Measured scan of single mutants.
Amino acid sequence: VDNKFNKEQQNAFYEILHLPNLNEEQRNAFIQSLKDDPSQSANLLAEAKKLNDAQA
């Protein structure tokens, strides 16, 4: 993981990586967004979790 991520951002990265119901395309999009703007990690994680739950 890129060293410019802080602890919260790293946690978001790993959580998104391991959400079971996202397809690869969705997962990659969230990860790319996280890399583009790490400050949005909490929002991105919340969105990813919502999508993950919706696809459960």
Rank of each mutant, 00 (worst) to 15 (best):
L22M: 04
N28F: 13
A12W: 03
D53T: 12
S33P: 02
Q55L: 14
K4H: 15
I16P: 00
A42Q: 09
D37S: 05
I16R: 00
Q55E: 13
A12C: 11
K4G: 15
Q55W: 03
P38H: 05
Q32T: 07
D53N: 11
Q9M: 03
Q26N: 03
A42V: 13
N21M: 09
H18D: 09
E25V: 09
A48I: 02
A29E: 10
K50N: 09
L34Y: 03
E47D: 02
K50F: 14
S41Q: 02
L34C: 09
H18C: 05
R27K: 12
H18N: 05
L19P: 00
L17F: 07
H18M: 05
S39M: 14
Q32P: 00
F5W: 07
D36F: 14
E47Q: 07
P20D: 12
A48D: 00
N21R: 05
I31C: 03
K4C: 15
N6I: 04
D2I: 02
Q10H: 03
Q9W: 15
K35L: 14
E47R: 04
E8M: 02
A54K: 15
A56P: 12
K7L: 03
Y14Q: 14
Q32E: 13
E47I: 12
Q26I: 10
K49R: 09
Q32G: 14
Q32Y: 05
Q32W: 07
Q26P: 00
K4L: 09
H18K: 04
S41V: 12
L22G: 00
A46V: 12
L22F: 02
N52G: 03
N28P: 02
A29F: 11
N6Y: 02
L22W: 00
L34T: 02
Y14N: 15
Q40W: 08
P20E: 11
D37N: 09
E25I: 14
A42E: 15
P38R: 03
A42H: 14
E47H: 03
A54L: 12
N11H: 14
N23M: 13
A48W: 00
H18R: 09
A54D: 10
F13Y: 13
P20I: 07
F30Q: 01
N11I: 13
A54M: 13
D53Q: 15
A46Y: 09
P20H: 08
S39A: 05
Q10M: 15
L22H: 00
K35C: 08
L19D: 01
L22N: 00
A56G: 13
S41Y: 15
N11Q: 15
L44M: 07
Q26H: 05
N43H: 13
L45C: 06
F13C: 04
N52W: 01
H18P: 01
Q55P: 11
K50R: 13
A46I: 05
N3T: 11
E8P: 01
E25W: 03
D2S: 02
Q26T: 06
A54T: 13
R27V: 10
L44A: 02
Q10S: 07
L51S: 06
E8G: 04
Q40S: 11
N28A: 10
K35M: 09
H18E: 11
A48F: 01
S41R: 04
L17R: 05
A42D: 09
F5E: 14
E24L: 10
E8H: 04
N23S: 03
Q26L: 03
N11L: 15
V1M: 11
N52K: 02
I16K: 00
A29I: 11
S41P: 03
Q9S: 06
S33W: 09
L45M: 06
Q32V: 08
D2P: 01
N43F: 15
E25S: 11
N23V: 05
A54F: 12
K49H: 03
Y14L: 11
A42R: 09
D2K: 02
N3R: 03
A12I: 10
R27T: 07
E47F: 08
N21K: 12
L45W: 04
N3W: 00
Y14P: 01
E24G: 13
D53R: 09
Q55H: 08
Q10W: 15
F5R: 14
Q9F: 08
R27E: 01
A54G: 11
F5H: 15
N43W: 06
N43T: 06
A54W: 12
K50Y: 13
D2L: 01
A46R: 03
H18T: 10
N43D: 09
H18V: 07
Q9A: 09
D53F: 15
S41E: 02
I16W: 00
D36A: 15
E47V: 12
N21I: 03
I16L: 10
Q32S: 09
P38I: 04
V1L: 07
E15I: 02
K49F: 06
Q40V: 11
F5Y: 06
K49Q: 11
D53H: 12
E24Y: 09
N6Q: 06
K7F: 02
D37R: 03
N6G: 15
Q55D: 05
I31H: 06
F30E: 00
E25C: 13
N21L: 11
L17A: 03
N43E: 15
F30V: 03
A29D: 14
K4Y: 08
P20S: 06
E24N: 13
A56S: 11
Q26K: 06
L34K: 00
N23L: 13
F13H: 08
N28M: 11
Q26S: 08
E47P: 00
A56M: 14
K35Q: 11
N21D: 10
P20C: 11
Q55Y: 13
E25G: 10
A56C: 15
L44V: 06
D2W: 00
I31D: 01
K7I: 07
K50E: 12
K35A: 04
E8C: 03
N6S: 03
A46Q: 11
A12L: 04
F5D: 14
A46L: 13
K49G: 05
K4W: 15
P38T: 04
F30A: 06
I31V: 04
F5T: 12
L51T: 12
D53S: 10
Q55F: 09
D37H: 12
P20G: 12
A56K: 13
E24A: 05
N6F: 02
L19I: 02
S33M: 13
E25K: 08
S39Q: 05
K49C: 09
D36Y: 05
R27S: 03
A12T: 08
L34N: 00
A29C: 10
S39L: 13
E24D: 11
N6R: 01
P20F: 08
A54E: 14
Y14I: 14
K50Q: 13
D2H: 02
L19A: 04
A29R: 03
N3C: 12
I16A: 01
L34I: 06
N6C: 07
Q9Y: 08
N6H: 04
E24H: 13
F30N: 00
P38Q: 05
N3L: 01
N52V: 04
E24S: 13
E8N: 03
N28Y: 07
S39G: 14
A48V: 04
N43P: 03
V1A: 07
L22R: 00
N3F: 00
A54Y: 15
F13I: 06
A12D: 07
S39H: 13
A29P: 02
E47A: 09
D36P: 01
D37A: 02
Q9T: 07
Q40L: 12
N11G: 06
Q10I: 08
K50I: 08
L22I: 14
A12Q: 03
D37M: 08
E47W: 07
E8W: 02
E15V: 09
E15A: 06
F5S: 10
Q10R: 05
D2M: 01
E15Q: 09
H18W: 14
A54Q: 13
S33D: 10
N21A: 13
A12S: 06
Q9G: 03
Q10N: 05
E8T: 02
F30K: 02
Q55R: 08
N21W: 14
L44D: 01
L19S: 02
N28T: 04
I31W: 02
S39Y: 13
K50C: 14
E15C: 13
S41W: 14
F5A: 14
A12Y: 03
E25H: 12
Q10T: 05
K4E: 15
